[in-house]
């Protein structure tokens, strides 16, 4: 029979993986998804406690976490859109204006993409009402 511990450990694992993603990835969308992953870990914790105490308090709390996550998603997406418009990039490293005055900005050098993997272009939304061009389609995944 499974006990409380194994569910808590699963929650901790998800939480920490989300943490690693949040700290190491530079794409703002991936960072945001990592934060949501951390919330999932916490939700598993709550539900496990709820299950093993035999009442619904934990479940109701998870519902509130869900609503807060939805708000967060709305605001974060809006912010990502305007940040993208300002710098034309999703790279969070473009925003480091709060550093100490005389510090050099942490510039990332352009890298030569190694051939070992194919760079996947993003999917693009075709114009509504028109048939998308055939060769563009081919380049998409």
């Amino acid at each position: 029979m499974l006990d409380l511990k194994i569910y808590l450990i699963l929650g901790a694992i998800l939480f920490c993986i989300g943490l690693i993603g949040f700290v190491s990835r530079r794409n703002m969308i991936t960072m945001f998804l990592s934060a949501e992953l951390m919330l999932q870990g916490v939700a598993i914790n709550f539900l496990a406690f709820s299950r093993f105490r035999g009442n619904l308090q934990g479940q109701s709390f998870v519902l509130f976490i869900l609503s807060v996550a939805a708000c967060e998603a709305a605001i974060a997406l809006a912010l990502i859109v305007i940040l993208y418009r300002a710098k034309n990039s999703l790279d969070v490293s473009k925003w480091q204006d709060l550093r100490e005055e005389d510090l050099e900005p942490n510039e990332d050098q352009e890298i030569l993409l190694v051939d070992s993997y194919q760079v996947q272009p993003m999917p693009t939304l075709p114009v509504a009402g028109h048939r998308p061009a055939q060769e563009e389609d081919a380049s998409h995944v």
């Binding site: 949040f22 700290v23 960072m31 969070v92 925003w95 709060l98 550093r99 100490e100 510090l103 942490n106």
Partner: peptide
């Protein structure tokens, strides 16, 4: 310690 304040949120 000043380089700690490098402005990178991560």
């Amino acid at each position: 310690f000043r380089p700690i304040q490098n402005g990178l949120v991560q």
